[in-house]
């Protein structure tokens, strides 16, 4: 019993120590963010690598999620004669919830794992050490641009996910289910609020962007410099990143929409 408690205590201490280290890491990276203002090219490069190259998966996923959403909701709403409200329900589901969350989950899988593997391999092949010896701080030159690039990319990707999802829903609703196209758009315009719905969704995606990219760059930087260490870092990035997104989504949703009832 005592041994089990000791194991549990050691496990918890290890987790807390790592959590503390990740915060110190974020603090050190933040110190180098100002320098990026003079070198925007480094961030733009990362927005391309992290954001633009993630576009295909985000757009395809967004299209199918919007289409499935329209089909599923229609089947329920038609029982209540509320099929004309399909537009706002699809849009609200996407901009408030599915857009930020599904984009963040896909982002963790596609861009997050790539970031962790890239940084982990740079560590394993002594590229980060060689930079230090060239008097170039890897935190400023490698980590900071990736953190900012990731944090900026996710909200943009989430917006595109929601936009293409709404379009997919429209195609299914009007082409397949016979919903009136004017009703789809006008109901959406009337019921989706810029600040309460869209802005809250954007805030969520900004938070997810910072957290998922932070987890990815930290896991990569903290990886053991071996092939097994890099593999573990990429796995942890996807698992921890996804869990963090889902947990934070509940907290943010409760804060944003919890008092509506």
């Amino acid at each position: 019993m005592i041994t089990q408690l000791q194991h549990l205590g050691a496990w918890a201490l290890k987790r807390f120590e790592r959590l503390g280290r990740s915060h110190l890491f974020l603090f050190h990276v933040s110190a180098g963010l100002g320098e990026l203002l003079t070198r925007p090219g480094l961030v733009i490069q990362q927005i391309f690598a992290i954001g633009v190259l993630s576009l295909p998966i985000i757009l395809v996923a967004g299209l199918f999620v919007g289409m499935v959403l329209a089909l599923q909701l229609y089947n329920t709403m038609v029982n209540f004669g509320a099929e004309q409200s399909l537009g706002p329900v699809v849009a609200l589901s996407l901009v408030r919830e599915l857009g930020p969350v599904v984009t963040a989950l896909l982002f963790a899988g596609r861009a997050g794992s790539a970031l962790a593997a890239e940084i982990g391999l740079m560590k394993a092949t002594e590229q980060l050490s060689s930079m230090e010896m060239m008097a170039v701080d890897p935190m400023r030159r490698i980590i900071a641009p990736r953190l900012v690039g990731g944090a900026l990319s996710l909200p943009l990707l989430a917006a595109m996910f929601s936009a293409i999802g709404v379009s997919g829903g429209f195609m299914v609703a009007t082409g397949l289910l016979g919903v009136d196209s004017n009703a789809y758009w006008s109901q959406m315009q009337a019921n989706v609020d810029l600040f309460d719905d869209i802005a809250n969704g954007v805030i969520k995606s900004i938070v997810f962007g910072v957290v998922v990219t932070w987890i990815a760059v930290f896991e990569g930087y903290d990886a053991a410099p071996t092939s097994e260490g890099v593999a573990r870092a990429t796995t942890r990035t996807v698992v921890n990143g996804s869990l963090a997104v889902l947990g934070l989504d509940f907290i943010l949703t409760a804060l944003m929409f919890g008092d509506n009832g």
Partner: peptide, 15 residues
């Protein structure tokens, strides 16, 4: 460090 050079065993070129 700007006045030191180091050649790593692997070369450590930026890939």
């Amino acid at each position: 460090r700007k006045r030191m050079g180091m050649l790593f065993q692997s070369g450590a070129l930026l890939t």
